[in-house]
Design a protein around this nucleic acid. Sequence first.
RNA 1: UGGGGAGUAGCCAAGUGGUAAGGCAGCAGGUUUUGAUCCUGCGUACCGAGGGUUCGAAUCCUUCCUCCCCAACCA
Length: 569
Amino acid sequence: MANEGTTQEPRSLHFIEEIVEADLASGKHGGRVLTRFPPEPNGYLHIGHAKSICLNFGLAKAYGGATNLRFDDTNPVKEDVEYVDSIREDVQWLGFQWKGEYYASDYFQFMYDYAEYLIQQGKAYVCDLSEAEIREYRGNFHVPGKASPTRDRAPEENLDLFRRMRAGAFPDGSRVLRAKIDMQSGNMNLRDPLMYRIRRAHHHRTGDTWCIYPMYDYAHGVSDAIETITHSICTLEFEDHRPLYEWFLEQDVDAKFFRRPLPRQIEFARLNLTYTVMSKRRLLQLVQDGVVRGWDDPRMPTICGLRRRGYTPEAVRSFAEKVGVAKRDMVADVGLLEYCIREDLERRAPRRMAVLHPLKVVITNMAESEAFEVEVANHPDDPAMGTRKLPFTRELFIDQDDFREEAPKKWFRLAPGAEVRLRGAALVTCREVVKDGTGQVVELRCEWDPASRGGNVPDGRKVKGTLHWVSAPHAIKAEVRLYEALFTQEDPMDVPEGQDWKALLNPRSLEILAEARLEPSLADAKPGERYQFERTGYFAVDADGQPGLPVFNRTVGLKDSWAKIEAKQ
RNA sequence: UGGGGAGUAGCCAAGUGGUAAGGCAGCAGGUUUUGAUCCUGCGUACCGAGGGUUCGAAUCCUUCCUCCCCAACCA
């Protein structure tokens, strides 16, 4: 064949890949690529972190490198071991394995030593100003900062003071160590940033051995350099911290502390998703206020929430790949995320019959003794997934959505006098509609065509509609939870003047169906398993289920072109 | 009015001086025992705006506009 080996157009590189390739080509790091994922253990990871994880781990893997997992635990009052375990679990679940597992706190002594070195070089000083005074002296965008009265203190005195700070000689907040850079800088980060503060707090790893803790800007670059990270990838808001990142490392003028070349910080745009919030603060609020049932509520954009919802790591990775990497502030359409999980589950989820809102159907021309079994495929396009048997009996359930007493245009589901196929089983025609006292349709009396067993059309007559169904006496009961977006507004952070952000919450984000009826094979579905309920969507088994009453979470619905047609009518 | 970034179709995003990739969404058809999947086709993107350089500019220069981030002893 002439066209053999159709060359797949290689995806164009994003700017970080270009940087890495350039470094590889120049031999800057001797062919090494070492990235790091540096979460602060003060909350659960969300889909935004997933993008960063996929970037850091994916990049390293693509270029034969590795990635460290480093917990950025420099603020003991906010951090907790509870979070490190969940972070580890989530990264692994996403399918990534880190090379080293480190903690910024592992480097406290090193950082302390380097700080003493900076003091000795006259690059850092102990400042006695109060928190409010420091703020005042720092000035603002329009007013340059002014020097702290202690800015020119002699190195020996600074060293003595700093040692006493560490020894616990001073109360919390009474002094800080500051880098001596430029109080006039237009970049506020350079106006003598704090390096250490006194904080008598119990640290989840170092306990009470320290009463001074380093600040992010100082700790982060130093940690990167210690680990010999080559590319330190972070989000856009750290862009104007980069000069500081570089400054701290470059003060190692004698190269006594860090191996060269030094790591390079690179910033990319963080992920935002329509109809959801991503800030830790808001997420925490949702949990604390009981809007959701916890961090792993399937409506949460957290990794554990997505997992419980039924998302696969493959789908999340695919999403991260599709949204791309650039420097432009971006808001990804949540529809793309949904596309990714459908795409994945479409080929891997076994099909099952499940009736969400049961409506009884009696086959009037069938005796109870005539019940039979039909064999149906577990996947229409994948014979390797096998088949299973479904009991077909005189009494069935179909979904209420599949019957209309007055059929609209283009309706090819059930209606009085209409004929439909019950998937894999038979053709049935609705002969009678039974209502209760309130006019509610409670039962359909239908006739089946015995010649159509298996769902075949015996004479080629037109039967457009195919419905899912279950046998009433065999069906098992289940709880099914349907989810929608947590917010009704595309950008939930854009709260209208004078309104509470909670007014934007979607009151229908969770709908619990307690009366669903499933085919019997689902009786012993295990938590975590994913299925496609034919014609309705993809569902994952929740751990909340009890023996005899499984609970299913709808991961995402199937595309529904009928809904579109009807909406247009 | 300081510093740092960014502006290409509804949402992402390629493009790096030679005449605008791709994905999602949307629309129209086809196949189909899931109105699913799958397949096919469909977009005058005045490349934020104006000026300039050039045979030729989304790409270079220039002026302007808009949006985002920064004044925690948070990360």
